[in-house]
Structures are given as structure tokens and as C-alpha cells.
């Protein structure tokens, strides 16, 4: 039987609770220090498979700005963030783009889409 205690800083809200997770043979035995259910959920996930939202930009052709800002619609594994950002390096979209438009489907086969977070209007004049 292996026992492990992991300390986690919760990133759900700006409060930054320090959560202590006790693991036994890789299974969660106790979670302490969270202040809300979202924090508990986060800690459960974080000890097994930390995930984050990726934010980046994608080239926007013919837009009023050269790029459109994007994010993953759901968190993706932390370990694959840079790889995921790289997957967005070779693509470009055409203006107009609206907030929420799907920019890229099924990023790295993770089943997560990439969506626009800023509009990119067509360049005028």
C-alpha cells in the first residue's frame, strides 16, 4: 500500500485555495481545504489528470486584425498544451469571424474544438 499526499493550488477562482489530497494506491482517500464544490471537483481531476483551457491566436485572412483570438471549448490535458498550440500554427481562417465560431475541430483528437473569442471583421476601405 502506497500513501501519497498532494498539495494543490486551486485555480477555479481568484481565491487560490490550497487543497490537500490524500491518495492511497492512486485512489483518493480524502480531500481537504476546498471552499466550494467546484474546488473539490478540480482537485479530484488535478491529482489524476491536470487539465487547462488553452488560449492562443490564429491567423485571420482579410480581417481588420491579422489574427483572431481563440480558446479550447473545454480544458485539455496540461501535458499537451504546447503541442495543441502548435497544431494551431499552420491554420488560418477567413474573415469575418464571430465570437464562438468554431475555428478548429477535434484538436489533437481530444474531442475538443477550438472557438473564436474575439470577432474579426472584414477589412474595409
Amino acid at each position: 500500500m502506497t500513501r501519497q499526499v498532494k498539495k494543490i493550488i486551486c485555480i477555479v477562482c481568484p481565491r487560490g485555495c490550497e487543497i490537500t489530497v490524500e491518495l492511497e494506491d492512486g485512489k483518493i482517500k480524502s480531500i481537504k481545504g476546498y471552499s466550494c464544490p467546484l474546488g473539490k471537483q478540480y482537485a479530484e481531476k488535478e491529482v489524476v489528470n491536470p487539465e487547462r483551457i488553452l488560449m492562443s491566436i490564429v491567423e485571420c485572412v482579410g480581417g481588420d486584425l491579422p489574427v483572431v483570438s481563440v480558446k479550447t471549448a473545454k480544458p485539455i490535458p496540461l501535458s499537451r498544451m504546447i503541442e495543441a498550440s502548435k497544431a494551431l500554427a499552420d491554420i488560418a481562417v477567413k474573415a469575418p469571424v464571430e465570437i464562438g465560431d468554431k475555428i478548429f475541430e477535434n484538436l489533437l483528437g481530444l474531442g475538443v474544438d477550438v472557438i473564436a473569442t474575439r470577432p474579426c471583421h472584414e477589412q474595409r476601405g
Binding site: I9, I11, R15, G16, P50, R52
Partner: peptide
């Protein structure tokens, strides 16, 4: 502190 975690430590 959450930014220290998710921006630096990560």
C-alpha cells in the same frame, strides 16, 4: 497564487 500555479509552475 492561482496564477503562480497555472502560469509558472505548470
Amino acid at each position: 497564487i492561482r496564477n503562480v500555479q497555472q502560469c509558472l509552475k505548470d
